[in-house]
Design a protein around this nucleic acid. Structure first.
Lengths: 116, 116
DNA sequence: ACTATATTTAACTTAGAGGTTAATTAACTT
DNA sequence: AAGTTAATTAACCTCTAAGTTAAATATAGT
C-alpha cells in the first residue's frame, strides 16, 4: 500500500495518455480542456489522469478563474534519470567518456559543484 | 489492450521487487532461487515477476540443467533514457553543456558516429 | 526406478487502475 | 438571478496485477 516514490513515478509514466499530456505540457501550460482535446476519452477520465500526475509530482495546478492551468514539474523525472544511470553502462558504449565528462562538470563546471 | 513498448517498460519498472531483481542482475547472472532469496514472497510470485521482466525484454533466460539463469538486458532502459532526454532541460541546468557534449561525441567520438 | 532440487503452471482471491455517465461545484457573463 | 463554461466528484463496471497454495514439470543424483 505505501508506494515508494520511484514506483509511483514509473507507474504514472506507464500510461501513454499521461505521457502525451506531459509532452503537451513540455510546450507550456495548458488547461484541462486543452489537454483533453486530443483524446478520444471523457473529460473525467482526463481529470483522473491529471490527478495521478499531480499525485506523482509530475505536474502542479494553478487557479485562474474557472481554469486550472497545469504545469510540468520534472523533479520525479530527474529521479528516474538518476536511477537509470546505474544501468547506463549496460547499453552505452561511450559510458566511460560520459562518466568522465559528468565528473568533470560536477566538480568544476557545475555552479554549485555538487558531487551527487 | 495492445500495450506499446515504452508503456510496458515503465509498467514493469513500477514494481520495487522487479527493480531489485534488476539491481541484483546488474551484478551478474543469477538463478530464480537466488533472485527470490531476499524477498518475503513465494517462489511463484518471483517467477511471475521474472516473466514480466522477460516479456518487457529487460531480462533473458538461459538453461543450465534445472536452472534458468537470468541475465539483464538493458535495451528497454536505453529507450527510457531516450524518452527522458526530451525532458532533461526541465531539470538539468547544465543541459546546454550536456547537449554540446552529446552532439560532440555523436558526430566525432562515437565509433559508428550515428546521429540518433 | 526413486528422490531431491529447481522452476513453472493452475486455480483462485483481492485490490486497484482506468474507463463510463450523471450530478455537482465553481467562476464568469449577461 | 439565470445561464454558460470549466472542472471535479460520485457511483458504477470491467479488467488486470500481484499475491497465495497446491500440483505439475524437468533435470540430476543415487
Amino acid at each position: 500500500m505505501p508506494m515508494d516514490h520511484l514506483s509511483t513515478t514509473f507507474a504514472t509514466l506507464a500510461d501513454p495518455t499521461r505521457r502525451a499530456i506531459l509532452a503537451r505540457l513540455a510546450l507550456g501550460e495548458a488547461t484541462v480542456n486543452e489537454l483533453a482535446a486530443p483524446f478520444a476519452m471523457s473529460l473525467p477520465a482526463v481529470s483522473k489522469h491529471l490527478k495521478v500526475l499531480e499525485h506523482a509530482g509530475l505536474i502542479t495546478r494553478g487557479r485562474e478563474a474557472q481554469w486550472r492551468p497545469c504545469r510540468l514539474e520534472a523533479g520525479p523525472l530527474k529521479d528516474v534519470s538518476g536511477w537509470l544511470e546505474h544501468y547506463r553502462r549496460f547499453w552505452d558504449d561511450s559510458f566511460d567518456r560520459m562518466a568522465v565528462y559528468l565528473n568533470e562538470i560536477q566538480t568544476k563546471g557545475d555552479p554549485d559543484g555538487r558531487k551527487n
